[in-house]
Design a protein around this nucleic acid. Structure first.
Lengths: 239, 239
DNA sequence: CGGGACGTTGACGGTCGTCAAAATTAGTGG
DNA sequence: CCACTAATTTTGACGACCGTCAACGTCCCG
């Protein structure tokens, strides 16, 4: 485990507007920065935390890309999300004081460690932080509603189109291209997230490429017709 | 809308151990009871809140049974959960100050209205309440992980078996039978929740009945072989 | 008693999973 | 730097599971 106790200043962090509430006073900002004690580097392929680990902290992603997945004793495995800079990991651990999923870095990453008892302590003093924490958890609940809709009622093409659009939209919000992206995950991981087999993911990519919607070169992706993809997502099968 | 301003005493409520943290002092309990200002009755079939409604409060179910569902502009509809006494509704509304799903009573119900600004205010004073709120939200996130696993990787039989086992387990925790239950929802609603069509739900019930696992009489259900159902959930398709 | 909502069952077809093989890339160690 | 192996991706053929469509049965409530 790679820990750095070098103090990180949220006030200078370029993830600030993603991580923190807006309009904090200087004194509030100083209080909030006490929450972030250390940062931690996670190498590609390494776990940030395992299923079963004791829960002590939430993690804000500074750089890098993660997946979270749950698994059952009988070997089933489900990717529950992909997280990028400015997003928070570890919310699942609060209920039972231990984590119930794995968080794995899909590229070399760095996170801010935010001990949860400190978060609770400071958010009693700084109302904006308190509300911010509530919003982050609520946002995760709403996101998962969307995934349930996707898994419960969409066909393979719709799922993949929705997935791609969501991914570029989030990357674009972080200053990346609207049309070009590099997939940090395998076809199998995409499939697990979308409730599809990797062959179906691959085939569906190929079909999108044939239709001129995207250009696929392994993990490099260029979106040629975003409206086309949006049309796929919003079109009911028939009648 | 049916509002009652009659003060409800959480300290006497039989949902207390489901709703509230344990070990509150008398003064803490008095503070927490300030959160519950009114109760509200919701008739069967009526909405507790609609998608798009402004968010003002969370709701603790005193009696009755609810479903929540999200819907898209193109008419898709997904049941995201079924909720019973002691569970909390409305968490989805916190992020954007308006609700993003519908909450509908499946039988006549009564809820405690807990204005969210009061929750935030009191939970700054009562640490146990603060942590309790965090746990409730985290529990919902973990529950949804489970649903994603179900929707993403289980077959129809497994989904329905897992659904039934979860339902009786929750009912049992509320003092009902371990083996007998009345379904408050239609086959279509079950199907929507499980990502299946109503015909598949019906057929799968019939298959369970043929195998002697359950006795199905419309919405009345008796579980004859719970271990058999558990075996279905935990058995990978083959190899 | 009658109508409408809900549930059951059957036949058929489509979507996606399974199995297999080949192609391409990435990673490793000499 | 290159050879070699492992991992990932693509593509095809086939089949299973579940969705679709349709008809019929059952229950509930006015």
């Amino acid at each position: 485990m790679n820990l750095q106790t070098i103090k990180v200043a949220c006030s200078n962090c370029n993830m600030r507007e993603l991580c923190l509430p807006l309009g904090l006073s200087d004194s509030e900002m100083a209080a909030v920065e006490k929450v972030v004690s250390v940062t931690r580097k996670v190498a590609r392929g390494a776990h940030l935390f395992h299923n079963g680990d004791p829960f002590t902290a939430l993690y804000a992603i500074r750089t890098g890309f993660f997946k979270t997945s749950v698994n059952t004793e009988d070997g089933r495995d489900q990717v529950t999300g992909f997280q990028m800079a400015g997003e928070v990991l570890g919310l699942d651990g609060i209920v039972n004081d231990h984590h119930t999923c794995d968080a794995i870095a899909l590229e070399d990453a760095e996170v801010c460690v935010m001990p949860f008892n400190l978060i609770e302590e400071i958010s009693r003093e700084v109302n904006a932080l308190q509300h911010h924490v509530h919003k982050i958890m609520s946002r995760e609940i709403v996101r998962e509603h969307g995934v349930m809709l996707l898994l419960g009622s969409m066909r393979a093409e719709e799922r993949l189109a929705a997935f791609l659009l969501n991914l570029v939209q989030r990357l674009h919000a972080r200053g990346f291209s609207q049309s070009e992206l590099v997939l940090r995950m395998t076809r199998e991981e995409i499939g697990s997230y979308l409730g599809l087999k990797l062959e179906t993911v691959s085939r569906t990519f190929s079909r999108f490429a044939d239709d001129g919607m995207v250009e696929v070169k392994q993990r490099h992706l260029r979106i040629l017709n975003a409206d086309g993809l949006r049309g796929i997502v919003n079109s009911r099968p028939c009648h």
